[in-house]
Amino acid sequence: MRIIVCIKQVPASLDVRVDPKTHNLIREGVESVINPFDENAIEAALELKAKHGASVSLLSMGPPQVREALRKGLAMGADDAYLLCDRALAGADTLATSYTLAQAIRKMGSFDLILCGRHAVDADTGQVGPELAERLNLPQITYVSKIEITGNKVRAERLLEESREVVEAPLPALLTVTKELNTPRYPTALGIMKAAKKPLTVWTAADIGATPEKIGLTGSPTRVTDVFEPPGHRRSEVEMLSGKPEEIAAALAERLQAAKIL
């Protein structure tokens, strides 16, 4: 069995500010990590590997520093890693990203399972997984909290708003996973040493045979036209109530009664 895990490198802190003049994000000095849900996906792949025997390949797209994220995944126990790194890929939205990943996966060869995190915590779209499944014509199972493989089928539990749903699909399939699925392991010292020797392949857009019109900003139908900090949700004027707790309670009750809320 071969499992491909798609991962994204995201800022360690989401506490970003917006430059009021340029409207660009101020991200200097912010450390990068593997998107938390993608770590759950790596962990799931490694658990399936331990149980059924499998090779686990990591795939990511981004600038050269994404190597660090891939090295960490290799240190956790993945077997090899692929980085799609090319200036032409920059500015990709989810449609262009899913195209690019699909091109790479076709080049990576056969697979049984693709795992992604349910969404990346920075852009928070959750769209790349389903879009990738569509491009590869695979069944998709989103919001997965349990995975079982039997023979040529995957049985998964999905966590929805008001229910848990158990579904079954033939392999190959694409799953997006939640944090309820598992607790990702930390790389061991031995794992980190081994990771340095594991293959990490870097491909350009040309390497994966990508059509220039379909990648990066050019291949992205969506445009970010403004970035801003949310306005405080200020109301007209707050009325402060003070005194002893009983007095405050009486004053509030009176006002809520007048407003017909009580």
Binding site: T94, L95, D124, Q127, A133, E134
Partner: peptide, 23 residues
């Protein structure tokens, strides 16, 4: 932007080759 909408909309956006904004 429910679990259903966020599962279905990207599948269709990719098939149509168009843009989709989340949530």
């Amino acid at each position: 932007a429910t679990s259903l909408g966020r599962d279905l909309a990207p599948r269709l956006a990719a098939r149509l080759g168009t843009g989709l904004t989340a949530d």
